Amino acid sequence: MVRNKLKEIRMKEYLMAPGEFAKYIGTDIKNYSNWESGRSRPKLEIALQIAKKLNKTVEEIWFLE
């Protein structure tokens, strides 16, 4: 199962509300909420853009459990 650390990154490193963080990474709150909760995942290109924006690798955000 693929998990992510979006909530942890958002809360510990950026101290932002979900809507504010969604705007920061370039998406809407609905998509972001689905990604953070694990209901869905972004396409690879978007995941790479998010990782670059957060100065992380994709593997630091999304991982296999």
Rank of each mutant, 00 (worst) to 15 (best):
M1T: 15
K5H: 04
L6K: 02
L6D: 02
K7W: 10
K7C: 09
K7Q: 11
K7H: 08
E8G: 01
E8L: 10
I9M: 04
R10D: 01
M11L: 13
E13V: 10
Y14I: 07
Y14T: 02
L15H: 14
M16Q: 14
A17M: 05
E20D: 14
E20Y: 11
F21T: 05
A22F: 08
K23G: 04
Y24C: 02
Y24P: 06
I25H: 06
G26A: 01
T27H: 09
D28K: 15
I29E: 02
K30Y: 15
K30P: 09
Y32D: 01
Y32W: 05
Y32S: 00
S33C: 09
N34V: 03
S37F: 04
G38A: 02
S40N: 06
S40C: 04
S40R: 06
E45S: 12
E45M: 10
A47V: 06
L48P: 12
L48I: 15
L48S: 12
Q49F: 04
Q49S: 14
I50H: 02
A51S: 01
K52G: 08
K52R: 13
K53A: 00
K53F: 00
L54M: 07
L54P: 10
L54V: 10
L54F: 05
N55G: 13
N55P: 13
K56N: 04
K56I: 07
T57Q: 15
T57N: 15
T57L: 09
V58Y: 11
E59P: 08
E60W: 15
W62T: 06
L64D: 13
E65V: 14
E65I: 15
